[in-house]
Protein backbone atom coordinates (compact mmCIF):
# COMPACT_ATOMS: atom_id res chain seq x y z
CA UNK A 1 0.00 0.00 0.00
CA UNK A 2 1.47 3.30 -1.04
CA UNK A 3 -0.65 6.46 -0.73
CA UNK A 4 -4.14 7.27 -2.03
CA UNK A 5 -4.28 8.32 -5.66
CA UNK A 6 -5.49 11.78 -4.63
CA UNK A 7 -2.11 12.55 -3.01
CA UNK A 8 -0.31 11.84 -6.28
CA UNK A 9 -2.77 14.11 -8.10
CA UNK A 10 -2.26 16.86 -5.51
CA UNK A 11 1.51 16.61 -5.90
CA UNK A 12 1.21 16.83 -9.70
CA UNK A 13 -1.15 19.80 -9.33
CA UNK A 14 1.24 21.69 -7.06
CA UNK A 15 4.16 21.10 -9.41
CA UNK A 16 2.02 22.17 -12.39
CA UNK A 17 1.00 25.34 -10.56
CA UNK A 18 4.66 26.14 -9.84
CA UNK A 19 5.53 25.68 -13.51
CA UNK A 20 2.64 27.87 -14.58
CA UNK A 21 3.63 30.57 -12.10
CA UNK A 22 7.21 30.46 -13.39
CA UNK A 23 6.09 30.68 -17.02
CA UNK A 24 3.71 33.58 -16.35
CA UNK A 25 5.68 35.81 -13.97
CA UNK A 26 9.34 35.51 -15.01
CA UNK A 27 10.68 37.96 -17.59
CA UNK A 28 13.26 35.73 -19.16
CA UNK A 29 12.68 33.43 -22.12
CA UNK A 30 14.85 30.67 -20.64
CA UNK A 31 12.90 30.68 -17.37
CA UNK A 32 9.62 30.56 -19.32
CA UNK A 33 10.87 27.46 -21.12
CA UNK A 34 11.89 25.94 -17.76
CA UNK A 35 8.34 26.56 -16.53
CA UNK A 36 6.97 24.67 -19.54
CA UNK A 37 9.30 21.77 -18.74
CA UNK A 38 8.04 21.67 -15.14
CA UNK A 39 4.43 21.62 -16.36
CA UNK A 40 5.07 18.72 -18.77
CA UNK A 41 6.84 16.84 -15.99
CA UNK A 42 3.87 17.20 -13.66
CA UNK A 43 1.65 15.77 -16.37
CA UNK A 44 3.95 12.75 -16.54
CA UNK A 45 3.68 12.30 -12.74
CA UNK A 46 -0.13 12.30 -12.95
CA UNK A 47 -0.06 9.73 -15.79
CA UNK A 48 2.28 7.39 -13.90
CA UNK A 49 0.04 7.57 -10.83
CA UNK A 50 -3.00 6.81 -12.96
CA UNK A 51 -1.20 3.85 -14.57
CA UNK A 52 -0.63 2.38 -11.10
CA UNK A 53 -4.16 3.22 -9.93
CA UNK A 54 -5.87 1.32 -12.77
CA UNK A 55 -3.05 -1.22 -13.29
CA UNK A 56 -2.82 -0.37 -16.99
CA UNK A 57 0.32 0.30 -19.03
CA UNK A 58 -1.31 3.04 -21.13
CA UNK A 59 -0.29 5.70 -18.62
CA UNK A 60 3.36 4.75 -18.85
CA UNK A 61 3.19 4.76 -22.67
CA UNK A 62 1.76 8.29 -22.59
CA UNK A 63 4.52 9.31 -20.15
CA UNK A 64 7.13 8.17 -22.70
CA UNK A 65 5.42 10.27 -25.37
CA UNK A 66 5.43 13.25 -22.99
CA UNK A 67 9.19 12.77 -22.57
CA UNK A 68 9.71 12.81 -26.36
CA UNK A 69 7.45 15.85 -26.81
CA UNK A 70 9.35 17.68 -24.05
CA UNK A 71 12.68 16.96 -25.74
CA UNK A 72 11.36 18.19 -29.11
CA UNK A 73 9.78 21.29 -27.60
CA UNK A 74 12.84 22.31 -25.64
CA UNK A 75 15.22 21.93 -28.59
CA UNK A 76 13.04 24.04 -30.90
CA UNK A 77 12.45 26.58 -28.13
CA UNK A 78 16.13 26.98 -27.36
CA UNK A 79 16.96 27.32 -31.07
CA UNK A 80 14.33 30.07 -31.34
CA UNK A 81 15.78 31.79 -28.26
CA UNK A 82 19.26 31.74 -29.82
CA UNK A 83 17.78 33.19 -33.05
CA UNK A 84 15.96 35.95 -31.16
CA UNK A 85 19.06 36.72 -29.09
CA UNK A 86 21.12 37.16 -32.25
CA UNK A 87 18.56 39.59 -33.60
CA UNK A 88 17.90 41.72 -30.50
CA UNK A 89 20.73 40.92 -28.09
CA UNK A 90 18.37 40.21 -25.20
CA UNK A 91 16.27 37.41 -23.74
CA UNK A 92 13.66 39.73 -22.25
CA UNK A 93 10.28 39.00 -23.89
CA UNK A 94 9.41 42.68 -23.52
CA UNK A 95 12.17 43.61 -25.99
CA UNK A 96 10.57 41.91 -28.99
CA UNK A 97 7.43 43.97 -29.58
Amino acid sequence: MIVPYSHVIVLAGIVFLMGMFCAVTRRNLIMILLGLEIMLNSGAIAFIGAALRWQLLEGQAIAIFILAIAAAEVSVGLALIVCAYRRKGSVDPGAYN
Binding site: I2, A51, Q60
Partner: peptide, 19 residues
Protein backbone atom coordinates in the same frame (compact mmCIF):
# COMPACT_ATOMS: atom_id res chain seq x y z
CA UNK B 1 -9.42 8.71 -5.30
CA UNK B 2 -9.14 7.62 -1.65
CA UNK B 3 -8.35 4.00 -2.49
CA UNK B 4 -4.68 3.36 -1.59
CA UNK B 5 -2.47 2.38 -4.50
CA UNK B 6 -1.13 -1.15 -4.53
CA UNK B 7 2.58 -1.49 -5.14
CA UNK B 8 3.35 -3.03 -8.52
CA UNK B 9 6.10 -2.72 -11.08
CA UNK B 10 6.02 -2.91 -14.87
CA UNK B 11 8.97 -4.99 -16.07
CA UNK B 12 10.91 -3.12 -18.77
CA UNK B 13 10.66 -6.12 -21.13
CA UNK B 14 6.90 -6.39 -20.76
CA UNK B 15 6.57 -2.64 -21.12
CA UNK B 16 8.63 -2.63 -24.31
CA UNK B 17 6.58 -5.45 -25.82
CA UNK B 18 3.37 -3.64 -24.90
CA UNK B 19 4.63 -0.35 -26.33
Amino acid sequence: TRIPLKAAAAEPVAFGHYL
